[in-house]
Nucleic acid binder design. Structure first.
Lengths: 137, 137
DNA sequence: CTATAAAATTGTAATGATTACAAACATTTA
DNA sequence: TAAATGTTTGTAATCATTACAATTTTATAG
């Protein structure tokens, strides 16, 4: 599928700027942040503004074309380390719930040469409460 | 184990401030941020500064008494949504690697009433490169 | 082909969490 | 008791993100 078709399929009008941001994400093997995307594309789109990059990424995320990668760059909520568990965050109301009883994730095969200290699992979606409020889409 | 013993066991001197922050985390069922911890404890410790809360949480995290919870509050790195995978971030060099071949996480039993849109897995530890550099502790 | 409306893009300023850093204070050790 | 070490504090700086209004571009109706 061509890139513009991917955007259209997600209900996004494929403007040039959007296409180029999509292309950049598509080619990037790392996980670029806004600054990086802006610096990379600004020479090609001289009028590009950082706000547009923010807007576009928010749009992509909302329409599920892209997703935000959770990293420890800006950590701001804390848990005692004693009870490992996952977190569910509702995209409607923002509430966070603990999720226990997750299957163990075995990493030995996937990461044989790494020393694993911690595994964070964040599940996002719509909680039971918010599903009552919202009609089916 | 008493709280001060927990701190000592992790090599942290149990000062009053540290004990109270530990107690607060221990009692909190949600995932408080720095502001919240500060607001809750400032009446009890009138001289408390926010910097101390930051310092203490960094210490706790470093000594593995607490851990930072990954949430979508400040999302700043992006991925195309098309290839779900986990991320490994090295705590020494900060490098991020993709991790494929993770076992599927089945959430139906754990979250029967929720609508799950996305699952983010962040593994942290020391990468193969950085293990060469560092002698065994 | 205009005129109008809608959507996309831009730039500036504000916000707010986090960090840097040096000073003040407390505690331990010689 | 003095010196050294560790802890706490306050202020200022940083930096990603957001708010918002203005501008430009694109689509649509007459």
């Amino acid at each position: 599928m061509q890139n513009d078709a991917v955007l259209k399929a997600h209900g996004i009008k494929p403007s040039l700027t959007r296409m180029m941001i999509f292309d950049y994400l598509n080619a990037a093997k790392h996980h670029p942040n806004v600054e990086e995307i802006y610096q990379a594309l600004q020479p090609k789109i001289p009028t590009l503004s950082k706000t547009t990059v923010y807007n576009t990424l928010h749009l992509f995320t909302e329409k599920r074309v892209a997703r935000a990668v959770m990293l420890k760059d800006q950590e701001n909520r804390y848990d005692l380390a004693s009870h490992p568990h996952a977190h569910f965050q509702c995209t409607k109301c923002g509430k966070v719930e603990d999720v226990f009883r997750l299957p163990d994730i075995h990493l030995d095969q996937a990461l044989p040469k790494h020393s694993v200290h911690d595994v964070s699992v964040l599940i996002s979606g719509v909680c039971a409460e918010c599903q009552k409020d919202e009609p089916l889409i």
